[in-house]
Design a protein around this nucleic acid. Structure first.
Length: 642
RNA sequence: GCCGGGAUAGCUCAGCUGGUAGAGCAGCGCAUUCGUAAUGCGCGGGUCGUAGGUUCGAAUCCUAUUCCCGGCACCA
C-alpha cells in the first residue's frame, strides 16, 4: 500500500493504488485544480499517473518551470488538433517546446497564410474552452506505426518506426485527435488559457536541408494572460533595441543593395568603431602582442596549401586578374600571419611570438544568413595568432582566457558562458594530432579554472576551440571570443623555428579573437545598452546648448576648449527652444547636455544634465571636464551621471 | 541556398476590386530670443526596388530579378 512522501517531508498513506490527481485532491481542492503534472520519484508524469508503491511526489503547477513546459507542450498539441480540424489534409510531424513557447511542423499542400493563423488560433481558443479531457494510452511500437499509417500520417509513422521496437509508445488524445508523445500533458485543454500564435515559417523535415520543407507554426504560451502580455511587451522592448533601428536613429551606419552584407560606416558609427579598435590595441599591446597587417588578396595557391580552399572554398570570394591569376580575398587572417612568422629564421628564444591584426575578412555567407551587423559578408576581426612550443600551450591559453574575461568586464559583461568545441566532421589533420590538440586545450581550460559545456563537432577545421558567449542586458547570448589550438596549419604552411638543439621544429599556433567580429560586437553593445553607450564609447560625449543667441560666443568658446582637451563635444546654437534641443540630443543618446543661459555665462558655469534626465547642477567647465575625464579613464566604472 | 512576407518622399507608413500618388515627422523659408523631452505659419520633395509583359491606361495584374524582413539550413 503506497506511502506518498511530499516535498516538505510529510507523508500520506493510502490503502490502495492512487492517481496523482487523487493525492492532490487529498491535500486540497485548490491544489487538485492547479495540478498540471507531477514528479513521481523524480520522473515527470501526468496527473492520471497511478502510484502503486511508496513514492516521492511533487505536484507540478503553473508556478513551476516544468508546469510552464507542460502548458507549452500541450498548447503545441492543441495547435495540431486545431490545424487537423480546419485542414484535414495537413499532416502532423513534431511539436516541441522552445524558449518562451513552442512550434509545430506540418506538411501541407500550400503555405499557411496569416489569415489561416488567425483562424487556427480562434479554433484553438474554442477547443480550449471545450475543456476536453487529455487521455494517455500505450501501445507496442509496431502497432503504433500501423495506427498512424492508417490515419495517413506518414511522418508520424516514420518517426515511430525509428524508435527501438521493444519500446512502448505513448499516445495522447483529446477529443477525436491523437498524437504520439512522451508527455506529460495537462489533464484537460481548459488549463490552456494564455497563448498566441506568432509566426509561420518554413522548416526542413528532420532539420536537413536535403529534405522537403514543412510549414512551421510558432506560438507562445504562458500560465496566465498577465505573463503573456508581459512577454509581448518584452518583445516590443527588444525590437526597440534592435541595432539596425538604433543604427538608423543615431546615424551610425547603413547597408545598401549594391553591397549585401557589407557596412557603410557613417562618421558617428566609425568614431565608436575606432574607440573599440583603440581600446583593443591598448590592451593587446600590454599583453605582448605586436600589431601587423597582411594582404587582403593573396594567390589561391596559398589557400590551397592552408586547406581553406578545399574545406570552405564555397564561402570564399575569388577574383581573376587580367594576367589570369586567381586570387582569394582573405576569409581569415591566419595564413597571412604565418607568412609573417615564417619570414626570417625564428629561434625558440623568440617564442611566444604574438601577432595581432584588425583584419578585414570577407566570407560569402548564404544570402539567407545575413542579418544587420550580426552576420555580414565583410567584417573586421580583432584576430591574433600566437606561435609557441607545445609546452607553452597551457600558460599561454590561460593568459588569453584571462585577457578575454577581463576585457568583457570592461564592457560590462560579467556573465560569460564558455563552450568547448571539438573536432568537426570536415577537418584537416590526423586523428592523433586532434587528440593532442583537444587534450592540450582541455588541460589549459582546467588550469585557467573555467567551467565549460561541450559543443560537439563544432570546432574549427584545423583545431578545437573554446567559444566565449556573452549574455546581454536582456538575457540573449552572443558568441564573440574564441581560442583555438592548432597543430595543423603551421605544418601545412611550412612554419618552423630552431630549437635549443639546432633542430627545426613546427610551432603550435593559437588562434584567438576577443571581440570576434567588431561589427557584431558593436551591434551587441548597441543592443545591450539600448543605444545609450557609455560615455567613453559615445560618438558625441556632450553637447553645449545655448538658450538664446546672447550665449553664442560663450558656447563656442566652451566647446572649443573641451574639444581641445580631447573630448568629443559639439554645440547647438540653433534658434530653437532649449526644451526642443534637449529632446533631440536626448533621443540621440548624448550622455551629457551642457546648457548655458545668461546666468551661466555671467557666473562662468555650465548647467549639466544627463541623458537620463538627471540635473547635476551648474558647475565650472573645468569641474565638468575633470569629472568626465575620470569617467572616461575608468571606462564608466566611475560615472558622472550616477 | 530553402519556405513565406515585403520594397511607395530623407524616416515611419497609407493608397479598396487598374484611371495617372498622400499623411505625420524630417528638410527649407519666414516670424519668434524663448531656462531643461516637440513655438507658429508657409514651401519644396517621389520615373512607387529593377527589367520585361498584359492593357486605351499599371504603384495596383503577370513574369523574371535584386535587396530587405521572419524562420529553416549554414556560421572556418
Amino acid at each position: 500500500m503506497p506511502v506518498v512522501t511530499l516535498p516538505d517531508g510529510s507523508q500520506r498513506r493510502f490503502d490502495h493504488p492512487v492517481t496523482v490527481d487523487e493525492v492532490a485532491g487529498d491535500i486540497g481542492a485548490g491544489l487538485r485544480k492547479a495540478a498540471l503534472a507531477a514528479r513521481v520519484n523524480g520522473r515527470l508524469v501526468d496527473t492520471s499517473y497511478v502510484i502503486a508503491d511508496d513514492a516521492n511526489l511533487a505536484i507540478v503547477t503553473d508556478k513551476d518551470p516544468e508546469g510552464l513546459e507542460v502548458i507549452r507542450h500541450s498548447t503545441a498539441h492543441l495547435l495540431a488538433q486545431a490545424v487537423k480540424e480546419l485542414f484535414p489534409d495537413a499532416q502532423v510531424t513534431i511539436g516541441p517546446v522552445i524558449e518562451d513557447g513552442f512550434y509545430y511542423d506540418f506538411a501541407f499542400k500550400r503555405p499557411f497564410t496569416p489569415e489561416d493563423l488567425a483562424a487556427i488560433e480562434a479554433k484553438m481558443t474554442e477547443l480550449a474552452r471545450a475543456d476536453e479531457k487529455v487521455s494517455r494510452r500505450v501501445m507496442p511500437r509496431d502497432e503504433a506505426v500501423r495506427f498512424f499509417r492508417n490515419l495517413g500520417e506518414i511522418y508520424k509513422a516514420e518517426i515511430i518506426a525509428s524508435i527501438p521496437d521493444k519500446e512502448q509508445i505513448s499516445l495522447y488524445g483529446q477529443g477525436n485527435w491523437v498524437d504520439l508523445c512522451r508527455g506529460p500533458h495537462v489533464p484537460s485543454t481548459g488549463k490552456l488559457k494564455a497563448f498566441k500564435l506568432t509566426k509561420v515559417a518554413g522548416a526542413y523535415w528532420r532539420g536537413d536541408s536535403r529534405n522537403e520543407m514543412l510549414q512551421r507554426i510558432y506560438g507562445t504560451a504562458w500560465a496566465d494572460k498577465k505573463q503573456l502580455d508581459a512577454y509581448l511587451t518584452r518583445l516590443e522592448e527588444a525590437e526597440k533595441r534592435d541595432h539596425r533601428r538604433i543604427g538608423k536613429e543615431l546615424d551610425l551606419f547603413h547597408l545598401q543593395e549594391e553591397a549585401p552584407g557589407a557596412v557603410f560606416w557613417h562618421p558617428k558609427g566609425w568614431t565608436v568603431f575606432q574607440c573599440l579598435v583603440a581600446y583593443m590595441r591598448e590592451r593587446q599591446g600590454l599583453a605582448g602582442y605586436a600589431e601587423v597587417s597582411a594582404p587582403e588578396l593573396m594567390d589561391a595557391s596559398l589557400w590551397q596549401q592552408s586547406g581553406h580552399l578545399q574545406t570552405f572554398g564555397e564561402n570564399m570570394f575569388l577574383t581573376k586578374t587580367p594576367d589570369e591569376r586567381v586570387y582569394a580575398i582573405k576569409p581569415m587572417n591566419c595564413p597571412g600571419h604565418v607568412q609573417i612568422f615564417k619570414h626570417g629564421l625564428r629561434s625558440y628564444r623568440e617564442l611566444p611570438v604574438r601577432l595581432a591584426e584588425f583584419g578585414k575578412v570577407h566570407r560569402y555567407e548564404p544570402s539567407g544568413a545575413l542579418h544587420g551587423l550580426m552576420r555580414v559578408r565583410a567584417f573586421t576581426q580583432d584576430d591574433g595568432h600566437v606561435f609557441i612550443t607545445e609546452d607553452q600551450i597551457t600558460a599561454e591559453a590561460v593568459a588569453i582566457t584571462q585577457l578575454i574575461l577581463s576585457i568583457y568586464r570592461d564592457f560590462g559583461f560579467e556573465e560569460v558562458a564558455i563552450k568547448f568545441a571539438d573536432r568537426p566532421a570536415r577537418r584537416v589533420g590526423a586523428d592523433d594530432i586532434w587528440d593532442r590538440a583537444e587534450a592540450a586545450l582541455k588541460a589549459a581550460s582546467d588550469a585557467a579554472g573555467i567551467q565549460y559545456t561541450l559543443n560537439k563537432g563544432e570546432g574549427a577545421f584545423y583545431g578545437p576551440k573554446l567559444e566565449f558567449v556573452l549574455r546581454d542586458a536582456i538575457g540573449r547570448d552572443w558568441q564573440c571570443g574564441t581560442l583555438q589550438v592548432d597543430l595543423n596549419m603551421p605544418e601545412r604552411l611550412g612554419a618552423y623555428y630552431i630549437d635549443e638543439h639546432s633542430a627545426r621544429r613546427t610551432p603550435v599556433m593559437l588562434h584567438r579573437a576577443i571581440f570576434g567580429s567588431l561589427e557584431r560586437f558593436f551591434a551587441i553593445l548597441l543592443e545591450h545598452h539600448a543605444g545609450r553607450l557609455p560615455a567613453w564609447l559615445s560618438p558625441v560625449q556632450a553637447v553645449v546648448l545655448s538658450i538664446t543667441d546672447r550665449q553664442d560666443e560663450y558656447v563656442r568658446k566652451v566647446t572649443e576648449s573641451l574639444k581641445n582637451q580631447g573630448f568629443r563635444v559639439e554645440f547647438d546654437l540653433r534658434n530653437e527652444k532649449v526644451g526642443f534641443k534637449i529632446r533631440e540630443h536626448t533621443l540621440k543618446r548624448v550622455p551629457y547636455l551642457l546648457v548655458a543661459g545668461d546666468k551661466e555665462v555671467a557666473a562662468n558655469l555650465l548647467a549639466v544634465r544627463t541623458r537620463s534626465g538627471k540635473d547635476l547642477g551648474a558647475m565650472p567647465m573645468e569641474t565638468f571636464a575633470e569629472r568626465l575625464r575620470i569617467e572616461l579613464e575608468s571606462r564608466g566604472r566611475q560615472v558622472l551621471e550616477g
